[in-house]
Nucleic acid binder design. Structure first.
Lengths: 152, 152
DNA sequence: ATTGAAACATCAATGTC
DNA sequence: GACATTGATGTTTCAAT
């Protein structure tokens, strides 16, 4: 990935609705090579896709919660079941297996505390944990889907 | 927001590169009303924009870390400075002010441990904290930018 | 007020140099 | 990598419900 690819990717990660001509002008190329580079990056899997981003407040999911899960079930079958459960719950937008004290970390979006409680009840019913603790976000200071291009 | 809008939004949050005709067919409308609804949702701020998603591994930022920050500086000026610092660091992709024990939570993406250490040094140099602890993601089980449409 | 079908304009995609 | 052409797609108009 050269400078041009990095520049293209940086722009597209911020705004993918830009026209090929405008993009080409910004990076200092003509439209064709610009288009070819995008195709190549898609084919290589560098660009995973193009999505619309929605506003959390407007969609009535203004409460973001981080759920820290500890378990004593460290087998593959349990994880697979938990992963399937998480996949089917649209409130869970991120889900990581962690190192250290906490086994799993979930990012959850719901309308309010009442909805979070309902979500929580549903979650612990579907998978059993040894310990769960929840931390609530008071303010979103930064959220971006754009990854750094400086390391590639 | 009626059923049609919800359906359109759900699809566009998964794939915004779909053509207007294909989208129209999926939701059971023709292209024109479909297009109008998207315009309306953009104008209303429900749709914040369209972006390209990049692959973290391919961009050499395969290590995701959650940084929990405690501080004794609870004034607005300090937060604004910290926010500006975070905004300028592309490795920080999410940043929340939290309730409870931890004051701030950051999600950080870097190539590896060595790079994380360099990032960490840079961070604590630019803003002073009373306590920082880092948790590393071993596995990304779910990550989606699609918010639930079921609450709207 | 909202839709669908057709005309129109714009842009992406291809071939050639 | 640039230029010119083709084909597909987004966008507007207008009649109809």
């Amino acid at each position: 990935m050269d400078k041009f690819d990095q520049h293209i990717l940086k722009i597209l990660q911020q705004d993918a609705s830009i026209s090929m001509n405008d993009l080409a002008e910004k990076v200092g190329l003509s439209a064709t090579p610009c288009w070819r580079r995008i195709q190549a990056m898609e084919k290589a899997g560098i660009i995973r896709g193009k999505v619309a981003l929605a506003d959390a407040e407007k969609l009535n999911v203004g409460l973001t919660t981080f759920v820290m899960v500890k378990t004593n079930q460290h087998n593959q079958a349990w994880l697979e079941k938990f992963a399937a459960v998480a996949d089917a719950m649209p409130e869970i937008v991120e889900f990581y297996r962690m190192s250290g004290e906490v086994d799993y970390l979930l990012k959850v979006v719901v309308p309010d505390m009442k909805a979070y409680d309902a979500f929580y009840q549903e979650l612990i019913e579907k998978a059993d944990f040894s310990d769960i603790s929840s931390s609530f976000a008071m303010e979103e200071i930064k959220y971006t889907t754009a990854l750094p291009v400086t390391y590639s």
